[in-house]
Amino acid sequence: MSSLQSSDAQFQFCFFRDAQALGPGWSSSPKLQIANMWKEDSGSYWCEAQTMASKVLRSRRSQINVHRVPVADVSLETQPPGGQVMEGDRLVLICSVAMGTGDITFLWYKGAIGLNLQTKTQRSLTAEYEIPTARESDAEQYYCVAENGYGPRPSGLVSITVRIPVSRPILMLRAPRAQAVVGDVLKLHCEVLRGSHPILYWFYHEDVVLGSSSAPSGGGASFNLSLTAEHSGNYSCEANNGLGAQRSEEVTLNFTGRHSTRNPLRSLPSPVPQEFPYLNSPTPGQLQPIYENVNVVSGHEVYSLVYYNQPEQESAAAETLRTHMEDQVSLDIYSRLRKANITDVDYEDAM
Rank of each mutant, 00 (worst) to 15 (best):
Y142H: 08
S59T: 00
P273M: 02
L4E: 03
Q10A: 12
Y142G: 04
A180Q: 04
Y278L: 14
R17P: 05
G285M: 13
Y235L: 00
T51W: 03
K187N: 12
I64T: 07
N309G: 08
K339T: 14
V296T: 14
V69M: 08
E191W: 02
R177F: 04
H259L: 14
N65P: 07
S159L: 09
S298R: 12
Y347V: 13
L57F: 15
N240E: 01
F106C: 02
Y150D: 06
N36G: 09
S304E: 11
G219E: 01
S62P: 08
Y142P: 03
E319Q: 14
E191H: 08
A53G: 13
M86W: 12
V272Y: 05
D8H: 13
R258Q: 09
S59A: 05
L91Y: 04
E249P: 09
V209D: 08
S7T: 02
T320G: 11
S2L: 11
L117M: 03
L117D: 00
A175N: 00
S137E: 10
N341V: 07
Q12V: 06
V92F: 07
V297N: 13
Y45S: 00
A139I: 00
I342F: 12
P289W: 04
L76C: 00
H324Y: 15
D41I: 07
R60G: 13
F106L: 04
G43H: 01
P165Y: 06
D327G: 13
N341C: 00
E77S: 15
M99T: 15
W38M: 15
Y347P: 13
F223S: 03
A9S: 13
T343S: 14
F15R: 01
A180I: 03
T320Y: 10
S96F: 04
S2M: 10
Q63E: 12
N280T: 02
S236A: 04
F255E: 01
R338C: 08
R336G: 08
Y150I: 02
M86G: 11
P152L: 05
A139Q: 06
L188K: 06
T126W: 07
S267Y: 09
Q246E: 07
E314L: 10
A98W: 01
G111T: 05
L91T: 01
A53S: 15
Y278F: 13
N254M: 14
A127F: 06
E250W: 11
D18A: 02
N309V: 08
V185G: 08
P273L: 01
G183S: 04
S248W: 03
Y204L: 00
E128T: 11
A239P: 05
P70F: 04
P269R: 07
P80F: 00
D184W: 07
L22M: 03
Q122E: 09
C237I: 04
Q79P: 06
E326W: 15
E348Q: 12
Q50V: 02
E250D: 14
E128P: 07
S330N: 13
I94A: 09
D327L: 11
S44N: 12
N116G: 10
Q122T: 13
Q63D: 13
S59W: 06
K55Q: 15
I290H: 08
Y201C: 05
Q12L: 09
Q141Y: 14
R135P: 07
P216I: 00
R168P: 02
K31I: 09
V209K: 15
N293P: 09
N295P: 09
G83E: 03
E206K: 09
V297G: 12
N254A: 12
